[in-house]
Every structure is written in structure tokens, then in C-alpha cells.
Amino acid sequence: MSKFFKAFFGGVSLVIIYVISILVAPIIMFLLGYSEVDSKPAIFNFPLYIVEVRGEEFFSEATPTGLLLSLILGISLYYLFPLLISKKWSRRNE
């Protein structure tokens, strides 16, 4: 059960990184000089995030689909990294 909580908190940390990056992205785009940006990528017709920059106004939204996918990705990476690292080290030691 302890390993699951560690994996879950790994997923939560990726969710936090996702939210921060979505909230900061329009500010960075605005500072780089982009004045007309409208980004709404979707998976299965559900948006991953919404970022809009219009002149001097900007808007961003982290959607539930993006939050769920980043949580699943964080949990799966927690379990996949040790598997990949152990295979890499076992090949190197041969």
C-alpha cells in the first residue's frame, strides 16, 4: 500500500507541474511577443488545456481531461522508470 501512495504522490506532482505550466504558458507567450494565440488540443473530443492570448489579455485553463491524463502518466512513470533503469544497468554490467 505504501508503494501505491508513493506512485499516487508522483502522479500528483506531475499534475502540479501540468497546472503550473498551463498557467504560466500565456504569460511566456505574451512576453515573447505572440499577440494572437488560440490553442485547444483535444483527445476524444475533450480538451487537454485551453490557452488564449488576445492582444494584451490572456487566458488559460487546465481541464479535467489534462489533469486526469497527467495523473495517470505520473503514476505509470513511477512504475516504469525502475523497470527501464534496471534493464539498462543489467545490460551495461554484462
Rank of each mutant, 00 (worst) to 15 (best):
48 L>F: 05
18 Y>C: 00
63 T>G: 03
9 F>K: 14
10 G>W: 06
74 G>T: 06
62 A>T: 15
57 E>I: 10
59 F>V: 10
93 N>H: 15
31 L>S: 11
75 I>N: 02
80 L>M: 09
81 F>L: 10
5 F>K: 12
48 L>T: 03
89 W>Y: 15
30 F>M: 06
90 S>D: 15
90 S>A: 15
32 L>W: 03
44 F>A: 09
55 G>A: 03
14 L>W: 02
85 I>H: 05
24 V>Y: 05
54 R>P: 00
71 L>D: 05
42 A>V: 10
34 Y>A: 02
45 N>G: 12
59 F>L: 12
66 G>C: 02
76 S>Y: 08
94 E>C: 14
32 L>I: 04
25 A>Y: 05
56 E>R: 07
3 K>C: 07
42 A>F: 08
79 Y>D: 06
87 K>N: 08
54 R>N: 08
77 L>F: 13
14 L>N: 02
15 V>E: 03
17 I>Q: 08
81 F>E: 04
36 E>A: 08
5 F>N: 08
6 K>R: 14
2 S>C: 07
39 S>P: 03
56 E>F: 07
8 F>S: 05
7 A>N: 02
35 S>L: 02
90 S>W: 14
26 P>R: 01
65 T>C: 08
43 I>H: 05
88 K>E: 13
17 I>M: 13
93 N>F: 14
22 I>P: 00
44 F>D: 05
78 Y>R: 01
46 F>M: 13
9 F>L: 14
80 L>I: 08
5 F>T: 11
8 F>K: 00
11 G>T: 00
50 I>E: 05
49 Y>I: 01
50 I>W: 02
64 P>A: 09
56 E>I: 07
58 F>S: 05
8 F>Y: 12
87 K>F: 09
19 V>I: 15
26 P>D: 01
56 E>V: 06
18 Y>L: 04
80 L>G: 00
62 A>H: 09
37 V>D: 01
74 G>H: 04
40 K>L: 06
42 A>Q: 13
64 P>Q: 07
15 V>S: 05
81 F>D: 01
15 V>Y: 02
43 I>S: 07
22 I>H: 00
41 P>Y: 06
75 I>A: 00
49 Y>N: 03
62 A>N: 11
34 Y>H: 06
91 R>Q: 15
91 R>C: 12
27 I>P: 00
31 L>C: 10
41 P>F: 05
56 E>S: 11
77 L>Q: 10
91 R>E: 15
52 E>W: 04
12 V>H: 04
27 I>C: 02
59 F>M: 11
85 I>D: 06
87 K>E: 09
72 I>Y: 08
62 A>D: 10
54 R>D: 07
1 M>R: 12
11 G>F: 04
62 A>I: 12
77 L>C: 14
15 V>C: 13
87 K>H: 07
58 F>H: 09
77 L>S: 12
18 Y>M: 03
50 I>H: 03
67 L>H: 04
92 R>T: 13
59 F>K: 12
45 N>A: 14
59 F>I: 10
40 K>N: 09
6 K>N: 11
64 P>F: 09
35 S>C: 00
85 I>C: 04
57 E>D: 14
48 L>S: 00
8 F>A: 08
16 I>P: 03
3 K>A: 12
21 S>F: 03
55 G>N: 04
2 S>V: 12
63 T>H: 01
4 F>V: 12
2 S>E: 12
27 I>H: 07
37 V>S: 03
66 G>H: 02
67 L>T: 07
